[in-house]
Design a protein around this nucleic acid. Sequence first.
DNA 1: TATAAAGAGGACTAAAATTGTCCTATAAGG
DNA 2: CCTTATAGGACAATTTTAGTCCTCTTTATA
Lengths: 136, 136
Amino acid sequence: MELIRRNTDYALRALVLMAKDRTGDVYVVTRLANEARVPEDFLRKTLQRLDKAGIIESKRGPKGGFQLSKDPARISVLDVMEAVQGPLAVNRCFLKDIGCDNFNRCELKEKLIGAQQDMVDLFKSVTIRELAAERG
Amino acid sequence: MELIRRNTDYALRALVLMAKDRTGDVYVVTRLANEARVPEDFLRKTLQRLDKAGIIESKRGPKGGFQLSKDPARISVLDVMEAVQGPLAVNRCFLKDIGCDNFNRCELKEKLIGAQQDMVDLFKSVTIRELAAERG
DNA sequence: TATAAAGAGGACTAAAATTGTCCTATAAGG
DNA sequence: CCTTATAGGACAATTTTAGTCCTCTTTATA
Ligand code: FES
Ligand code: FES
């Protein structure tokens, strides 16, 4: 099983493209999609989520597009994952909007919640800047 | 998104039940399923995978059932996850049987593969014994 | 040896999630 | 006011997950 779904993967690729030349430009989805070889409409919907999460900003109209709204060093892979595919949990029980009627009696959860926190921290520590920095 | 699917969750619960009283008993799926409040047939299929992975052993016939074949301290959550739901990867590209035609040129992979290894190590470090030890 | 109690294994299904596509609306520059 | 771009939602195809069911094999024991 993979942790990163297609849409998150696409989002990461687009963000890296944007982070590479920090000209402050606005990027049109058509171009990002071509360069990342990714379905355009799907990418656009995904970028809209990043916009709502405050990771990028959208501008409509001619000369419009998407633009980073943060320093790439301050955008973590976790931020992107959670913006695109929702909260990251080890077990379904630990998701707020699902929950578990057995939570109080459950004997598995302490250790697993610990592991979940470690995992979250792990992906919080990898940033777009680092991804963009690989091989120049 | 959650890392542990239903079948892995069920498997963990069954393993913890087995680990709790180390009488060396053989456990019938009907009983495990009742105690863990889990669908019996589905649990049986899941336990069959644990058997193939060498984590438990099955015995057919009357007085048959499943039995731990290792010390619970030597069964990690990762072992169970991989036995039940296959290899754990950060990105689809990193799964052997899927792969990626862009792998050589890809600029995202180094950091992400590093994170993947950390994640694997993390779940390798949590054992059934620890899960079973919670609250007596 | 007949019977019954288990798991083995595969076919099948239902439901849910993922991964898209498409159409209309809205915003803004020129 | 025309064109370029995103916004947003409805829709569809595919894949995955989760589960059920049926038949077969193994084995203890009456
Ligand atoms: S928290 Fe739900 S069963 Fe453990
Ligand atoms: S390894 Fe497949 S695109 Fe990065």
